[in-house]
């Protein structure tokens, strides 16, 4: 039997709790080391453990590949009969088996850009407030509040949008928008409540937390000296934020915005419930529409025939490819600022 071991490790000047628990584990080592196997057995076990861990990492790659393969396979019928015209045709008719995704691509672009347009200034302000202006006692409460916003399920946003937001839009906001800005053509037609505008607002609320928290991370990555240097030159607080912080963090902030865009593009339930569901392209934001995600959610379980099913899967394929590109782009931009540190975003 090995004698109990006493290990001494150098005490760190500032001991964090995880280091303390690390020291405790070292004390446990003496116990564990009693069960040490022979070197050969150890090598075999090591190799198998390593294999197991690598297998689970590889399966992650396999899953992403499987998603692509299945989408391609199941949409084969639609891809061969409509070709690339699928993306530009605006007819969606299950009765005549003619399908084109243009109205949904349009709906996705309009609703998510509208959402981003509303969300970006607000989340930029929130991120700046949380990192630079907020009194310390508020920081934690506000931070948790924003995180909570991210944790609310999509279907609950939809429920709220359908029963609270849509009536408010129909009765108060849409009529007044029509009166003041009706001439632009963006706010024409009957105020229904549900429609593109409602979808945009709901999306804005939903992408806010992710844009705000990634922006916050990026802002925190800007070295303190930058701020000190600008202040030393006699800048006001805002000039310091503009020149010392925002200018240095701009690439990462663009990344955060694109990340939010990716989230908005793929958002399904809430949008399905408030967008009004109609395969049409209309200039007015009051008009009902559909997005790539919402049409799949709405029609897939009651698809009329094989071609309808296959077309819906091609719609999902388009959605997958778009979000893939958008997310990859966003990640690269954010990584270039935070230097590959794993992000602590709730996402």
């Amino acid at each position: 039997m090995p004698t109990p071991l006493k290990l001494k490790i150098g005490r760190q000047p500032e001991q964090t709790p995880e280091q303390a628990s690390g020291q405790q584990s070292i004390k446990k080592l003496a116990v564990i080391s009693r069960g040490v196997t022979s070197p050969r057995e150890g090598r075999f076990a090591d190799a198998s453990f390593r294999g197991l861990v690598i297998a689970s990492a590889v399966s992650l790659l396999v899953i992403v590949a499987l998603i692509l393969i299945q989408l391609l396979k199941q949409s084969a019928a639609s891809r061969s009969s409509f070709g690339l015209k699928f993306l530009t045709t605006s007819i969606w008719n299950p009765v005549t088996d003619k399908f084109g995704a243009a109205p949904f691509i349009y709906g996705t672009i309009v609703s998510s850009f509208l959402g981003i347009l509303i969300a970006v200034p607000l989340s930029l302000g929130t991120a700046l407030f949380l990192t630079e202006l907020c009194p310390p006692f508020l920081r934690r409460i506000l931070g948790t509040t924003v995180e909570l916003l991210a944790a609310i399920p999509s279907v609950i946003y939809g429920l709220w949008g359908l029963f609270v937001l849509a009536p408010v839009l129909r009765l108060y906001i849409e009529p007044s928008l029509q009166k003041s800005l009706g001439w632009t053509g963006l706010f024409s037609g009957p105020p229904l409540g549900v429609g593109m505008l409602a979808a945009g607002i709901i999306l804005a609320i939903m992408v806010l937390p992710i844009v705000a928290s990634v922006t916050r991370e990026v802002i925190l990555a800007v070295p303190r000296q930058q701020r000190e240097a600008v202040l030393a030159l006699g800048a006001t607080r805002w000039e310091m934020l503009r020149m010392g912080v925002l200018r240095n963090a701009r690439v990462g902030i663009v990344g955060a915005v694109i990340l939010g865009l990716g989230r908005a593009i793929g958002e399904t339930m809430a949008v399905t419930m408030v967008i009004g569901n109609s395969p049409q392209i209309s200039k007015s934001l009051f008009a009902p529409g559909n997005t790539l995600a919402s049409v799949v959610a709405l029609e897939f379980s009651e698809a009329a025939g094989d071609m309808h099913l296959s077309s819906l899967i091609e719609v999902a394929l388009v959605l997958f490819v778009i979000t893939l590109i958008v997310n990859a782009l966003a990640r690269l931009l954010v990584w270039s600022v935070t230097r590959g540190q794993p992000s602590r975003t709730l996402a």
Binding site: A57, L60, L61, I63, V64, L66, I67, Q70, L71, K73, Q74, L259, G262, R263, I265, G266, E267, T268, A293, V296, A297, F300, I313, A316, L319, F320, T323, L324, V326, N327, A328, R331, G340, P342, A347
Partner: peptide, 28 residues
């Protein structure tokens, strides 16, 4: 890095697309 990037990509895949994949793989 490849695995890390893939995890981030998978994180960004819309949930409905993952649902469709599970449908194609298991339900079908």
């Amino acid at each position: 890095d490849v695995v890390r990037f893939t995890a981030d990509v998978l994180n960004g895949v819309p949930s409905i697309v993952i649902g469709l994949t599970a449908w194609a793989l298991v339900v079908v």
